[in-house]
Write a protein that binds this DNA or RNA. Sequence first.
DNA 1: AATTTTAGCTTACACGTGTACACTACTGCT
DNA 2: AGCAGTAGTGTACACGTGTAAGCTAAAATT
Lengths: 210, 210
Amino acid sequence: MSGVRAQQKEKTRRLLVDAALNQLSAERSFSSLSLREVAKEAGLAPTSFYRHFTDMDELGLTLVDEAGLTLRQLMRQARQRIAKGGSVIQISVETFMELIESNGNVFRLLLRERSGTSAAFRAAVIREIRYFTMELCDYLQQAKDLDAEVAYMQANAAVTIVFSAGSDALDIDDKYEREQLSKQTIQQLRFIARGAAELSDRRKAIRRKR
Amino acid sequence: MSGVRAQQKEKTRRLLVDAALNQLSAERSFSSLSLREVAKEAGLAPTSFYRHFTDMDELGLTLVDEAGLTLRQLMRQARQRIAKGGSVIQISVETFMELIESNGNVFRLLLRERSGTSAAFRAAVIREIRYFTMELCDYLQQAKDLDAEVAYMQANAAVTIVFSAGSDALDIDDKYEREQLSKQTIQQLRFIARGAAELSDRRKAIRRKR
DNA sequence: AATTTTAGCTTACACGTGTACACTACTGCT
DNA sequence: AGCAGTAGTGTACACGTGTAAGCTAAAATT
């Protein structure tokens, strides 16, 4: 009942998850990790791995879930900053870029598995990104009073641009270059916002005519 | 001097390249291919591989180069179609989507290696995509008379959106859904074009004032 | 015609992999 | 107190891997 056992199990499970995360880097993808390596890094015998996951795939999906969690925390953080005033786009991009800097490997995981060889992984990543997109879509519809379909297209395009910029940022060390990239990304998001706002207005005008 | 030998060598080199390409699929990435598998598929003894490439990496870079070639052929094709009249954006997207359908695995290679674990691969892919972007940038500057910096930002955003759409298209079988995706992509590109044109005009106006 | 080069072969080896199996020690339930 | 369940261990095996070494036959060079 006390659960000292379950507690310990959860603890070494985390050891495995963290071991996997720690091994990820620019040069090391999840798919290139072996069960034995992860177990070793966690300080476990290879066969002990199976007490926690049936598969490396299962561990991987857990990692993707955690990455999604990180993404959602990011959103919350961005919302808080936005509430304090300032350019929504600028704050969003800056917050995102901070994530890249502090959690590069988690982000790399998402990027890689999105185009990876496992359908389950791809689906999981896409699900997390879709969630991200939908949040933005809701915001646009509500705060900017956009047409529903237009809001979705804008949100989708914006997320695509931001993720791509994040991917580029991963390969940049120079601080100045990163700022340059941020500025460019912000401008690109403004392009999209501008175009979307216009289409939304046009559609509204048509509706009024009827 | 006749070169019957060199000719034969080139032939089996192609055998290796094609063998690698043929093994690529949604479920199989280049990095998951082994030297032995490729050699076997090409009908060669494993060790014969070394007569043509020092490494799987060298083969991989060759593949990326070929993929870049395919991309450039695509551009030429699109330009020809555009010359015959019609919406530039629509024709470009449709042409690109045809590439996805006919050369999905080549495109997958680019997508995956762009975020892969080898710096050399990443650099090679980025080089090809940059070439693609620059072509578009030149076109925009010239045909649409855009400010240089604005043209680059538009080209960059457009390529990002199109590649992302291509990536999504790879996971879609349904024809109707694909058309839907194309339409959405076209609209998103129009957002960007709209925003870019506006910024370019504004910048021009400022310059005139001086 | 004799010699050198070389594309391709077979054999061989050391290494890392996933995982089956049997065992131990300790928790948790009855 | 005693029994069942289980997190973790070490050993063992079959398999696929990259690649070194040496050989053969045919093309190219001399």
